[in-house]
């Protein structure tokens, strides 16, 4: 199975904001909620591939900057009335550090 990789310190992610992680294959946006819950999602909107890392986060949702689709960060699903889904990645926080499962 794939392994956990440390990517960033929790406090380097702005609250209700994101950091962009570039891996060899894909770009991943890591978000931090106001409750310090962390989410990781592929940095591409299911609509037209907009960079979700650049959107505004609220609750556990991000609004895509290109056409305002709202994406649920825990499932990757677009909220009604839109339909679509982006990959989400397993993510955990230990000792103030954020790990991604890749």
């Amino acid at each position: 199975m794939s392994k956990w990789i440390e990517v960033v310190e929790l406090n380097k992610i702005p609250v209700l904001g994101s950091r962009l992680i570039k891996t060899r294959d894909t770009d991943i946006a890591v978000f931090r909620g106001s409750d310090d819950q962390v989410y990781a999602i592929r940095d591409a909107c299911p609509h037209k591939g907009g960079p979700l890392s650049q959107g505004i986060m609220h609750g556990s949702t991000v609004t895509c900057p290109l056409h305002n689709w709202k994406i649920d960060l825990s499932s990757g699903n677009a909220l009604a009335p839109d339909h679509g889904c982006s990959n989400v990645f397993a993510v955990k926080v230990e000792g103030g550090r954020v790990f991604l499962q890749l």
């Binding site: 990789i5 990517v7 962009l20 992680i21 060899r24 770009d27 890749l102």
Partner: peptide, 11 residues
């Protein structure tokens, strides 16, 4: 600076 700097991961 963080806004403009992505994190690079070799994975």
């Amino acid at each position: 600076a963080a806004e403009f700097t992505p994190i690079m991961i070799e994975a």
